[in-house]
Design a protein around this nucleic acid. Structure first.
Lengths: 231, 231
DNA sequence: TTTAATGGTGTAATTTTCACACACTATCTT
DNA sequence: AAGATAGTGTGTGAAAATTACACCATTAAA
């Protein structure tokens, strides 16, 4: 059974790679497509940009429509423009990423019929995705890995109050390697933008860890410049 | 006198920020436009992507048509998608950069009528450019400044054989600060990818400096991995 | 009270970064 | 040929950052 699809001329689209961290695992947000092409496939949340919206606005709108998530701070990271990346015609897509705390309460509700559902999936063992979305994901993952070194992106993935162990295991998940506990703590604390709280973890069946907060104001003061190389 | 211009729907374009280094100064390639809008203005080389070419291919073609330069290694660095960035309609542009040696011999010849001429202009004291090209330039300049720290891009700007002083002054031009000569040399040589030649500079009226080459193969061996943070 | 699980801590060796100044060489000028 | 000019080339010590490494402390559950 052949499905006849419309084709189109130049179209812009947006695709989103949204990272979350839950249960010690790094995850991304996927949707199950409800439309041809690639009906029933898993894909990154993505759709077509309208005439009268900037691409940044489009990214926010599209993510919301497909997943119900709003007000993330998304950043563009690459544009994919191979001729045949979309079977229906010429579609150039601008890829965005964001990092957010996964919030168990809020569930993910697509607003359009275009996605059947949206859900978190561990970044390890990702299935094959629609279009060139696997490649888009990989490019995005490499970007945030690099960016982790000079931007405070990890804190967007953790709850407001977190333990140093949680922070470390997030770094380990992103960088995909083990870090030394003592050195990690020493270094993180030396930056001076972590605020130690008077609270402790609750509900654990072992010694409770201290909680910390990321202090944006201190961070901004410390790093008005970048951390460049030489002198 | 009002000029009536066609408008268009979604269009992709490419704009190129091409860096060169000459006479101790960092320069970029500009064109003088010969078409409305912004006729007679200075602009980055840029034009519209065809239906049947990838954006990477388009970047090469467009740069060639507007400046006569070919076979550069261009890399995309950002996509600009504000709604009103182009007065004639919706144009989303993917910006590319490249770094090349300025070669006095070859002159710059636009192949299309769209550019009246193409020429090198120092990055300091840039005039106001057409469209949002000043912003595109700034974004690109910041990108290469950062990339200088982890990619061997400086060597693309120098002649094949160069002195350490030339290399240092290029770094200084990009980073816009003075570096210490002894520390710079020590560090550069410590990387191990500079090959010292038996030749010396010629035609200077002072002690001639040793010439060096960038050794791609050694570079590749040394940096198969990235230079990440911690352990 | 024991066990299981994780929290929390310090030091020494090594490497990297940084600040800093002067003698050398080639050419040009007089 | 002597001196001026202009850029080349080199080393060290202090300070800071990075790395490797192991054990006791605390809590809750069994």
């Amino acid at each position: 059974m052949e499905v006849k699809l419309p084709t189109f001329d130049s179209v812009f689209s947006i695709d989103c790679v949204i990272f979350g961290f839950e249960a010690g695992e790094l995850k991304i947000l996927l949707i199950e497509r409800n439309e041809e092409p690639f009906k029933d496939w898993l894909a990154l949340p993505g759709y077509i940009v309208e005439q009268d919206e900037s691409i940044d606005d489009a990214a926010e709108r599209i993510l919301y429509e497909l997943t119900g998530l709003r007000d993330l701070h998304m950043q563009q990271f690459h544009t994919f423009g191979e001729v045949n990346r979309h079977p229906q015609g010429r579609v150039i897509t601008v890829a965005y990423y964001a990092l957010i705390r996964i919030n168990g309460q809020k569930d993910l509700r697509p607003v359009t019929q275009f996605a059947r559902k949206a859900f978190w999936h561990p970044v390890n063992e990702l299935p094959k995705l629609a279009f060139d979305h696997s490649e888009i994901f990989n490019t995005g993952f490499n970007k945030i890995r690099r960016r982790l070194n000079y931007q405070p992106i990890a804190f967007e993935l953790l709850p407001e109050k977190f333990t140093l162990t949680q922070l470390q295991s997030l770094y380990e998940a992103i960088l995909n390697k083990k870090l030394d506990k003592r050195n990690f703590r020493k270094k993180m604390l030396s930056f001076g933008f972590l605020k130690e709280l008077d609270e402790k973890q609750k509900g654990v069946s072992y010694r409770a860890a201290k909680l910390y907060k990321f202090d944006k104001r201190k961070y901004a003061k410390i790093f008005h410049n970048d951390m460049s190389i030489d002198k």
